[in-house]
Design a binder for these strands. Structure first.
Lengths: 230, 230
DNA sequence: GTTTTTGTACTGACCAGTCAGTTCAAGGCG
DNA sequence: CGCCTTGAACTGACTGGTCAGTACAAAAAC
């Protein structure tokens, strides 16, 4: 019921503000809010359970129980366990990319450099991970799996995240702020990894640190202020 | 049978040089080589299957079949599926840390700086991942799981990897090469993440790139040569 | 009166772990 | 050498349990 569990927290009683991806809820365009509330509860329950145990080890009965809902309801709302998971993934990644893109845009509007934009995106990424740790865990754990039914969903979802960063890197190269010798895709992947792993480590092994601490450490690394004492 | 699958390749016909952890193979002190060969086959089979599908989705029957061995043999050699997995983890991480540590030492002996050492470790890490991609996948996917039977094994194993890097960072701070304001644990985690994620991305999504390419990109990032055109 | 949820019961597949029995390899012995 | 013994290593059918997904009648909710 409480939030802090996943990327699906929005007030269940309020109007629907999910980034639309439903097949065709109803013709009215609003979508039944009762149904939507149930889905939210299922997302929240599923995201934590799957993050903790993995997809296969998590049972539909568990998800239903944690969501406070009958098992039949799960199947009334989602075609299968896998479909529930895929929609969860898409939903969460939508939130993440929106957050990153917004951070980059804000910096642009404020007349910041591209380094500033990257920095702001690091902060936004950390903020997202702090708010939705379970989702992040699940994302990392499933992203590099091959041989899985939802391979294609995973590819799409990865590309969305990386693309946001690649855009900023390319813009920086174009305006001369970054070396034109940087490898855009690899650097983007490395940056994602840096933030992801540092943040997960932070959450799992030293949760007492503040977001600012973590941000400062990563920012220093990004700007090459590691070598050179002082 | 071929290697390239996991951190468990050594020639099965050769003398036993496994990092010892056997209960009490025989009194002769050598350990049955037949048994050891079977274990190797099981490790190899398990590492790829678990990397592809995850621990829970991989069945003991599958592992046995891929290893060309009967199911009972798995249980003759390992107390349970989880134990097999834990020993696999420990074995692989042992190889990784040895490789990292060696890279750092070599640099030291050659009179290199600590930045050089980090650079050499990045290269060693990339080499390891290229040789044992399945193990790396599995490591990343399982490392941040909570609520799991092998929590403690995971903690130990993580600490071993991070410690190698932290040591170099601390040495660099001590000799004035690095700023004394860097956050050692966080920076170490970030570096691990940078290498891990960039390498997995490389393997999964742009395998045509050479190790040198990837190394160059990460090295540039490490040394802050991203900003500044040229 | 239509949509959504509930609760319970059921099915069929799948799977971790077991165990009684078989094979292997190495040493002893005639 | 060929034969036997012994214990370690291996086998694979079997068991007990679990779980995804189904079915459906009755109750809420709207």
């Amino acid at each position: 019921m409480t939030s802090t569990t996943g990327p699906v927290s929005s007030d269940a009683a309020g109007p629907v503000r999910i980034n639309a991806m439903e097949r065709s809820t109803t013709a009215t365009g609003g979508g039944s809010s009762r149904r939507e509330a149930t889905r939210q509860k299922l997302y929240e329950a599923a995201v934590t359970l799957i993050a903790e145990q993995g997809f296969s080890a998590t049972t539909v009965d568990e998800i239903a129980e944690r969501a406070g809902v009958a098992k039949g309801t799960v199947y009334y709302n989602f075609a299968s366990k896998s479909v529930l998971f895929e929609e969860l993934l898409r939903h969460g990644v939508g939130l993440l990319t929106a957050s990153l893109r917004e951070a980059a845009e804000q910096t642009d509007l404020a007349g910041g450099t591209k380094v500033d934009a990257l920095d702001a995106m690091i902060r936004a990424g950390l903020g997202f991970i702090a708010r939705y740790p379970a989702f992040t865990q699940l994302y990392v754990a499933e992203l590099w799996r091959t041989n899985r039914a939802w391979q294609s969903t995973l590819m799409v979802v990865r590309q969305q995240v990386v693309a946001v960063i690649e855009d900023v890197l390319r813009a920086g190269v174009a305006n001369g702020e970054f070396s034109d010798e940087i490898d855009v895709p690899l650097t983007a992947a490395a940056l994602v990894g840096m933030v992801l792993v540092a943040a997960l480590d932070w959450q799992s092994f030293q949760p007492e640190r503040s977001l600012d601490d973590v941000h400062a450490a990563l920012s220093r690394l990004l700007q090459g202020r590691v070598s050179g004492s002082r």
